[in-house]
Amino acid sequence: MHPHIEKLYQTAAKAERTIIGLMSGTSLDGLDIALCKIRGAGLQTELKVEHFCTLPYSADFQARVRAVFSKREVDLQTLTLLNPWIAKVHGQLINQCLAEWQIAATDIDVIASHGQTVFHCPLRQHQDPQWGNATLQLGDGDHLAVTTGITTISDFRQKHIAAGGEGAPLAVYGDYLLFSSATENRIMLNIGGIANLTWLPQSRDANAVFSTDIGPGNTLMDAYIRQVQPGQYFDEGAQLALQGQVSLSLLSALQQDPFFSLSFPKTTGPEVFNLAYLQRAQHASGTLLLTAADVMATLNAFTATMIAQAIKNSCAAERAVVYASGGGIHNPLLMQQLRQQLPQCRITTTAELNINPDAKEAVLFALLANECLVGGQQRFSNAREGIPSVTMGKVSFAD
């Protein structure tokens, strides 16, 4: 047996594994790094976050990634060079964290790397029957493993697509295994660049669980603030939005995309919801002369309205607790609007479940890596809702 395979076997046999989960979202603000201690697998998973940090990306990193991000036409050389380069940058950030935490690389069993999504392209989006679903994440696992000296499990989304899914949302697997409750209906709401939700009925019946993208979370607001206030990456504290008034005509135009009439589950990305989308909506509604504050207020209302509608459509007859996570929870106006539009739901964050809401996505990839190593005995799937039963992740060794 190869020593690497033997070490994987020994890791899988341990009572507790130390796994670093990574998440780099569409906001491109930084790399989320969660060091997790995980016991068990499946519904018996016990997870504790020992350390968490978000290390910001440099302006150079953001510029290089944005050169290809969500663009149909890119420079192929740049795309090719980014794949190992992103992984090396991520590896250096992990090494920095481990040094600050005074933890040796040899104390980490594996890294779970999501990579950096640069293009998401499900069939429902491109509508070319010659092709199926596709998605692309950069940040090669081999380079990350070599840079850190730690075995890496990466590229989770491809197996989901190979099994018939759209490659997203993957949070449903971790949501079901980690957050299912026998005492209450739960909605796990993540407000990242794109907002998505997982419905977890208190019956814990896997055939009733589903997960779906909703539409824009922060992506339009973040893109717009970068345009009108260069050097600012998000509307901190909703300062600009709070100065404006919602334009009902623009809000209505923003809601007209065919994506919103598609049945659940469905996926989307900044490839659809971007500044060009906003400009088309402004042209259609005759609102090109709105102030920046009014546009931002309307974009904020747009995100809140589509999230509220999705929750009402997905579980209208059920009472549920909404556990929110992601950058959107720091937008006070957005959270206020959600509570106003969803009076039947108690809205809180995953902090109430002992998971830092900023760390949740990184934690869930650590959990997927754990399932890759020791899961499989308790399979979770719901084919009707586009959730295939698969083991995700590719293993890269450090030498």
Rank of each mutant, 00 (worst) to 15 (best):
N207E: 15
V209S: 13
H90S: 12
S389G: 14
R17N: 10
F210N: 09
T80V: 06
Q62S: 14
G25S: 06
H114Y: 10
G139C: 07
Q125R: 07
A13H: 14
A87N: 09
L275W: 14
L242A: 15
M1V: 14
C121L: 09
F264P: 14
M306D: 05
T135R: 00
D155N: 12
L82Y: 10
Q377F: 03
S285D: 02
M306S: 13
A320I: 04
A320T: 08
H143L: 00
P3G: 00
Q337L: 13
Q227P: 08
R124M: 02
D399L: 11
I33C: 07
A304L: 04
G167C: 03
G192L: 06
T152M: 01
N300A: 13
V118A: 05
Q255I: 00
I187P: 07
A162E: 12
A112V: 09
A351K: 11
H2P: 14
T198I: 02
L290I: 14
I111V: 13
D29Q: 02
E184Y: 09
T348V: 14
M1I: 10
S180G: 12
A317Q: 15
G231Q: 05
L275R: 02
G21Q: 04
I20T: 11
G192R: 13
S389M: 06
A310D: 02
L353C: 08
L123K: 11
Q10V: 03
S181M: 04
F179A: 08
A281Y: 12
R280S: 13
G286N: 08
I111Y: 09
F397M: 03
P258M: 00
Q336F: 06
I108K: 01
D60I: 14
D60M: 04
E16F: 01
W199I: 10
